[in-house]
Design a protein around this nucleic acid. Structure first.
Length: 449
RNA sequence: GGCCCCAUCGUCUAGUGGUUAGGACAGCAGGUUUUCAAUCUGUUAACCAGAGUUCAAUUCUCUGUGGGGUCACCA
């Protein structure tokens, strides 16, 4: 049996004490993609030995977030440490019999502390292991002492459980965060004590907050579910997360999951930590929004549309189709729709704008001139049968050019939107329809009197 | 503090013993039908410091500085 013929097994071992963190999701992605590209498999292990903090609902949520990202987990193969007490007992008894571990009588430090723990008999040697991205790393394990590996025969501590489980699950490649580096030597010691083969180690750099500290709640959204709720697309999350700490060495930046599985290269992982940059995430998300079909974009918009707007469905469905392209080029993520509607640029499609008449004047344009322009616009528009933006534009263009485009187009646009910033007046007109367009232009006229 | 890891534009990064140190995001300027968005073009901006090796260091070595991790009867 050579390494080549052995099936590659990676694992994702979260402790179900919270929602899936973006950093963990990134680690899961690296494991999943590496396994996939080698015809292997990523196993899911729930490290739920901490009875107090572990909750099944978190495990479910983590699984659900992974699924949303497109990571497939074989749920029949899920391993839960809480169910493996007897397995750990088997290894611990063997270790004690072998003399690689021993029961140690301890003086209880606190009330309620047990008086007996199981310690590892440290051979006190140098351990050298190879990390895929950093090369050989050497530790003197003497300083570790005879560390505790279990509270009792069925209550293992982290390091023992990890080593036993990885061994029994047949894990060949461990890809984890760089905080695992310092833990590796003692895990190797335990491996050697139970005669488990040494897996390949790859330690990934952290993803950091903007101030280079650990990414935590105080920096904003940190769980996948929050990004999902904000209307980020899973394709964008995957793409961004994978390019954080890895790149193919070419200028290519947009990768589908399939392409990642094809082109990912474990040895090209970065050494230094990388800041999780929302601005770049937004860019990725926008790129993927641009690629969406009209149908799926429409569904997504409907999903994120504020309730208030949905109540006006009769009205909005009619114009929604026309608004879609305008919305598409204006949002980074679907939750932007909320702000766009509430006092933002979606609002003026559904109700007449309120504004100060002074704002209708372009730069130093005169009132009387502007009134003339608006009247002219109304008369031209009134004669358009095919009320499409192209058509409207063509009809008004010569006049606008002759009188000064800003002089004509600004008051028109402002009359329709009541905002300093909005889509162009032709697009607005088409979406509003001839009747409403003229109505608003007349309102503007009143405001100028 | 001991041990371990890391260090290229603001951010993500490419890269080399000799390069105009490249790309992307952001920024800035301009074009594109008035504003915004989108789009196109152009552009600002980086090798942590010192010493050593060398004809030549951003690149190799050492030291320092800075950041991070780990030293639990948590995971």
């Amino acid at each position: 049996m050579t390494e080549q013929t052995k099936k590659i097994i990676t694992r994702f071992p979260p402790s179900p004490t919270g929602y899936l963190h973006v950093g963990s999701a990134r680690t899961a992605l690296f494991n999943y993609i590496y396994a996939k590209q080698n015809g292997g498999e990523m196993l899911f292990r729930s490290e739920d030995t901490d009875r107090e903090r572990s909750k099944k609902e978190f495990e479910d949520e983590i699984l659900e977030s992974l699924e949303w990202l497109g990571i497939e987990i074989d749920k029949t193969k899920i391993v839960r440490q809480s169910e493996r007490g007897e397995t750990y007992r088997k290894y611990l008894e063997k270790m004690i019999a072998d003399g690689t571990a021993y029961v140690s009588k301890e003086i209880a430090e606190k009330e309620g502390d047990r008086t007996e723990v199981i310690r590892f008999k440290n051979p006190n040697k140098k351990v050298i292991f190879k990390d895929t991205v950093r090369g050989d790393i050497e530790f003197d394990t003497t300083e570790l002492g005879d560390f505790v590996i279990a509270k009792s025969l069925t209550e293992p501590l982290y390091h023992l459980a990890v080593v036993v489980d990885d061994y029994e699950m047949g894990v060949t490649h461990i890809i984890r965060g760089e905080d695992g580096i310092s833990n590796t030597p003692r895990q190797i010691l335990i491996q050697e004590a139970i005669n488990a083969p040494r897996p390949f180690y790859t330690h990934m750099p952290f993803s950091l907050a903007p101030d280079r500290s650990k990414l935590s709640k105080r920096h904003g959204a940190v769980s996948i579910r929050e990004y999902r709720k904000m209307g980020y697309l899973p394709e964008a999350m995957i793409n961004y997360l994978m390019l954080l700490g890895w790149n193919p060495g070419t200028d290519k930046e947009i990768f589908s999951l399939g392409e990642l599985i094809e082109e990912f290269d474990l040895t090209k992982i970065q050494k230094g930590g990388a800041i999780f940059d929302l601005v770049k995430l937004d860019w990725f998300n926008k790129e993927y929004i641009k690629k969406m079909s009209e149908q799926s974009f429409r569904e997504k918009v409907l999903e994120f549309l504020p309730e208030k707007l949905k109540d006006m469905r009769e009205y909005s469905d009619e114009i929604l189709t026309k608004m879609l392209p305008v919305i598409k080029e204006r949002i980074n993520k679907f939750s932007d729709l909320k702000e766009m509607f509430e006092g933002g640029e979606l609002e003026y499609y559904f109700k007449n704008p309120e504004y100060n008449g002074e704002n209708l004047l372009w730069k130093d344009a005169q009132k009387q001139e502007t009134i003339g322009h608006l009247n002219k616009i109304i008369s031209i528009i009134d004669n358009i049968d095919n009320f499409q933006s192209d058509e409207i534009k063509t009809s008004l263009w010569d006049y606008a050019t002759e009188k000064g485009r800003g002089n004509v187009l600004w008051p028109m646009r402002f009359a329709l939107s009541g905002k300093d910033k909005s889509p162009d007046p032709f697009t607005l007109s088409e979406i509003l329809g001839k009747q409403k367009t003229i109505e608003r232009l007349k309102i503007a006229l009143d405001k100028l009197k």
